[in-house]
Design a protein around this nucleic acid. Structure first.
Lengths: 205, 205
DNA sequence: CGATTTGCCTAAAGGCTTTAGGCAAATACA
DNA sequence: TGTATTTGCCTAAAGCCTTTAGGCAAATCG
């Protein structure tokens, strides 16, 4: 009975890969166990339950995405920064649809998660925290982009929400195939929309 | 053994209600059978499988939403029409989160659905079609809104995609609680964003 | 009123989740 | 290096969901 070397971290990582292959909502504790060639119950020493696993995968995705965004933003400002950051999201979603879907997975309120009282329960106490922290990083990065547009409050918050909505909405609809029924291809609308968004931000009253 | 009077239509309707109560991805054939106080297997005479049920619910939601949007659009134009239509979406999503989530459920490609060869299989052949038709209605309605802004092609398609992305993205993020971490409340960003969008459309180059 | 349709039922197989309890590999420590 | 503790992975088992097969009786149609 050799040990495979499981851990919360490895499971989240492997779960992210699995998500990209079969789709996020086909990610299951069983499927992941199969992938490690291990009994299902073994995973429950590292992961609290199915939703915990999904939240971990979400955190992995959100963190990766923030890392890439931070890289892309280095040395850029204004429209340049805006399109770079937006493209990071879109490209990531296209290359890792499962992970991107995972990033949208909101963990249930703490009350719904069973308390960590069992014999050997995985850490996870800081899990929701970690997820929230990754989310906060994203909005900080968007705020950094907006620094190039000179907006006060509450305009800046409004703008962050607008850009976030556009990028998230576009990518989601595009991935769902909603843009496939009309011409031109969605590839060509995207840069024009970013351009329009840049104009809008520059003249935000 | 009295008959309850099931049908694909009633199941979709009841499924929509159930979705609003327990969340779309907790909608299950079993839960629906329970609600009708009927054996689970009975539902399979009216619904091909779990995903078929979900697609039917999605179609109900998409159709309701299009109906409401069409009503709201009557007699309105320009910014007035834009905010009215956008508000229909947002209000619907807030009042019927389960249905709204359902509307985002993309049915799998026809090949994945088992063929209708069994003894007594529910109709459903026109199901994906009905879903697509409802989707098309939505984009037609958005195009009607844009008639007030005098855009040519491909600008009009770009604009439809932009507005759709903003509305869908905003509502999704708002419902997921993503806007709950910063001030001001998302209620107050919404009208300002619609206003900005109106400006953008009026000056679309 | 008899024949046909069809709504709902019982039975059964298979998959995913989760808990309980146990053995042995890994690690820590004397 | 030998012993003690931790802990990784296992077997067993219960519960819920999905889906198919086949059957009886209520509804409907001539």
């Amino acid at each position: 009975m050799a040990r495979v070397g499981l851990s919360g971290m490895r499971l989240a990582q492997a779960g992210a890969e699995l998500a990209d292959e079969v789709g996020f909502d086909h990610v299951t504790v069983s499927a992941l166990a199969r992938r490690f060639d291990v009994q299902v119950a073994s995973l429950y020493s590292h992961v609290r339950n199915s939703d915990d696993l999904k939240t971990r995968i979400a955190t992995v995705a959100l963190t990766e995405l923030a890392d890439q965004a931070a890289d892309a933003l280095a040395g850029r400002a204004g429209a340049d920064a805006l399109t770079a950051m937006a493209n990071v999201y879109r490209t990531y979603a296209h290359e890792h649809p499962g992970r991107y879907a995972a990033a949208r997975h909101t963990p249930p309120p703490p009350g719904d998660q069973p308390a960590a009282g069992a014999r050997r329960t995985p850490a996870g106490s800081a899990l929701g925290t970690e997820y929230v922290a990754a989310g906060r990083r994203h909005s900080e990065l968007w705020r950094a982009v907006l620094r190039g547009y000179d907006l006060g409050e509450p305009a800046q918050t409004d703008a962050v929400r607008l850009i976030g909505s556009v990028v998230h909405g576009y990518v989601t609809l595009e991935l769902a195939g909603s843009f496939g029924y009309s011409d031109p291809p969605s590839d060509s609308s995207w840069p024009r929309i970013l351009d329009a968004l840049d104009n809008l931000l520059r003249s935000w009253s």
